[in-house]
């Protein structure tokens, strides 16, 4: 076997690219779940972000405005979910699934006239000085802006949840919404905020796919990334740092299996294709093996309907 053509530097660069949309969607969903809401509509919000970002970029010729539109579109869709679940008290699982179906259909409709177009070129950001470093420079400092931004969001979320009073309140709402309510916190509005943030992140993740990773619009192009993001939140046991680990691990295995195939390695391609999913399942089993720890990590009010009756 000739491994000399396997370039680890290029491998890591494409790994990061494959992982970034999942990372963005997962960190948003993490905040939503921390507030005690389970939104299964990630895939729908991503695809809406993908088409909104693509359409606005094409119309305005500005990828920045496209990204902004994706954020707004993802958040708007999420707020529909928020309105239904928080004010009309609908079932979160059913509403989330419906949101995915709705998002996929709406995106297909909106995107009809955008197939076959090219978006303005992506936002590369070679960090000065650092990008000139040998190996490390190419691996870590020659990405598009969104890669760094996604990592900044993770840092921000970690800081917010663990180091700020507002983050503490959000976690309290997720752990025991009745207690938070009796302390005078507005459970519904806090959750609406978290849901909007989750939608914005998912939208951004979708736009990353349609503007940077592939640059084109095709119906259903997120192809299940939203579901992977949901799995990664559990995989990460609701810890922001582990979301990075989960997303990069998933991206890494995906890229590696394609590269190993190109190398002509003698393992059946079917096994290689299933590895990313297999590893996700295995790690989730390991993570949840210790029942006490797993239940400590999951927000206690996750998925429960809050009704302020007193």
């Amino acid at each position: 076997m000739d491994f000399s053509t396997l370039n680890p530097v290029a491998l890591i660069a494409s790994l990061i690219m494959a992982a970034t949309p999942i990372l963005l969607a997962a960190i948003g969903e993490l905040v939503v779940e921390k507030s005690g809401v389970l939104n299964l509509g990630v895939e729908g919000m991503m695809i809406i972000g993908a088409i909104a970002g693509f359409a606005i970029s094409v119309e305005t010729d500005s990828p920045w405005l496209g990204m902004l539109a994706a954020v707004l579109a993802g958040a708007s869709l999420a707020l529909i979910f928020g309105f239904l679940t928080q004010f009309l008290l609908s079932n979160q699982v059913a509403t989330g699934l419906a949101l995915t179906l709705f998002g996929l259909g709406l995106a297909a409709l909106l995107g009809q006239s955008y197939s076959g177009m090219k978006p303005p070129s992506s936002l590369r950001l070679d960090i000065p000085v650092l990008s000139d470093l040998p190996i490390v420079g190419e691996m870590l400092f020659r990405h598009d802006f969104m890669v760094y931004f996604s990592l900044l969001i993770v840092v921000g979320v970690w800081f917010f949840l663990n180091r700020t009073r507002a983050g503490l309140v959000l976690r309290a709402v997720g752990e025991n919404h009745n207690a938070a309510h009796s302390l005078g916190y507005n459970v519904v509005m806090i959750r609406m905020g978290a849901i909007a943030f989750g939608g914005a992140c998912a939208g951004l993740g979708g736009a990353y796919v349609s503007l940077i990773r592939v640059p084109q619009w095709t119906e259903g192009m997120t192809a299940g990334a939203g579901w992977i993001a949901l799995a990664i939140v559990v995989f990460a046991s609701w810890k922001p740092w582990r979301v990075i680990l989960g997303a990069y691990l998933f991206g890494g295995v995906t890229i590696l299996q394609l590269n190993l195939q190109a190398l002509g390695i003698g393992i059946s391609a079917a096994y290689l294709s299933m590895t990313p999913y297999l590893i996700t399942i295995i790690v989730m089993v390991i993570m949840s093996a210790d029942r006490r720890r797993a239940s400590l990590n999951a927000p206690a009010s996750l998925g429960q309907i809050f009704h302020a009756s007193h």
């Binding site: 949309p21 796919v209 990334a225 995906t254 890229i255």
Partner: peptide, 16 residues
């Protein structure tokens, strides 16, 4: 049809 995966595959081939 999965544009993301097709793009990843193209990248992997180009890298090699």
């Amino acid at each position: 049809i999965d544009p993301g995966k097709e793009a990843d595959a193209a990248n992997a081939l180009i890298e090699q």
